[in-house]
């Protein structure tokens, strides 16, 4: 056990070092090496954080799907914790992608927000996974909460392709994807490199955050359903004491 923890901590340190390196390289590439866009100018550089945030949200929700299926099959609460840690990251990244997109939209589109299918479906995605995190705490049986969360985690994933392909299926103000697209668009190689390294940096940081969060969750909650409360030493069979649950 102790050696596992030590090895896990060492992996975290390596991951942290790789994250810092990738993030530093991404910052240099995105701010200094890549040219501004011919049409959009400097605000286009928001792409190097907006797109990786959206990518990491998709990746997190895919992890939620896998962990939720595993939990429904095994009923193991460790899978529930993995789903929860990934969903927390995904919700944060979805909110970040919306916020950064809004900041990008104001100078380029001329509006902070538009009722465009891509934007609306992304907010729905955020709400579904907030729901996934919320249903876990409804009721006081952790096993039931975990099952409900897993159900949302499986079914809610249909929203991910809906968000991603919203720009293809419907006519939107939001531009279609340039890279993860059935019809990739040309991009300056310096821009594409900066975007790739930024995606790598976000992914590494996400893995690190989820690993650390899992350790916190594992320390906070038991792996097994809570054992039956121990009988109080002073109470006999004839004494009734109200049991108070936290």
């Amino acid at each position: 056990m102790a050696t596992t923890t030590t090895r896990s901590r060492r992996t975290d340190r390596l991951l942290a070092a790789a994250t810092v390196l990738a993030a530093g390289a991404a910052a240099v590439l995105a701010l200094l090496v890549a040219p501004p866009d011919a049409v959009q100018g400097q605000p286009q550089r928001l792409m190097y954080v907006h797109v990786p945030a959206a990518w990491l949200a998709y990746l997190s929700f895919a992890a939620v799907l896998v962990a939720s299926v595993a939990h429904l099959v095994t009923r193991d609460l460790r899978w529930d914790r993995r789903a929860r840690a990934a969903a927390e990251l995904g919700v944060g990244m979805t909110a970040l992608a919306i916020a950064l997109g809004s900041i990008w939209g104001r100078p380029v589109w001329g509006a902070w927000w538009v009722w465009d299918p891509r934007l609306v479906t992304t907010v729905v995605l955020l709400l579904v996974y907030l729901g996934h995190l919320s249903v876990r705490g409804l009721g006081d049986d952790p096993a039931t909460g975990a099952r409900r969360a897993a159900a949302v985690g499986v079914i809610g994933f249909v929203n991910v392709p809906v968000v991603h392909f919203s720009v293809v299926w419907w006519r939107t103000l939001h531009q279609p994807a340039s890279v993860l697209s059935p019809d990739p668009a040309p991009m300056d190689p310096r821009m594409a490199t900066a975007l790739g390294v930024a995606v790598l940096a976000f992914t590494l940081a996400g893995v690190l955050v989820v690993r650390r969060r899992l350790r916190v969750l594992a320390a906070a909650g038991p792996a097994e359903p809570a054992p039956a409360p121990l009988p109080s030493p002073v109470t006999g069979p004839l004494v009734v004491t109200p049991r108070i649950r936290p």
């Binding site: 501004p36 792409m47 991009m187």
Partner: peptide
């Protein structure tokens, strides 16, 4: 009374090839 700009998904440097548009500051 509402005018929004729709841009495409192609990203390229400015035409002059320097990678720095003339008004590049800000």
């Amino acid at each position: 009374d509402v005018l929004l700009v729709k841009h495409d998904n192609e990203y390229r440097p400015p035409e002059d090839g320097t990678g720095r548009p003339a008004e590049d500051r800000g």
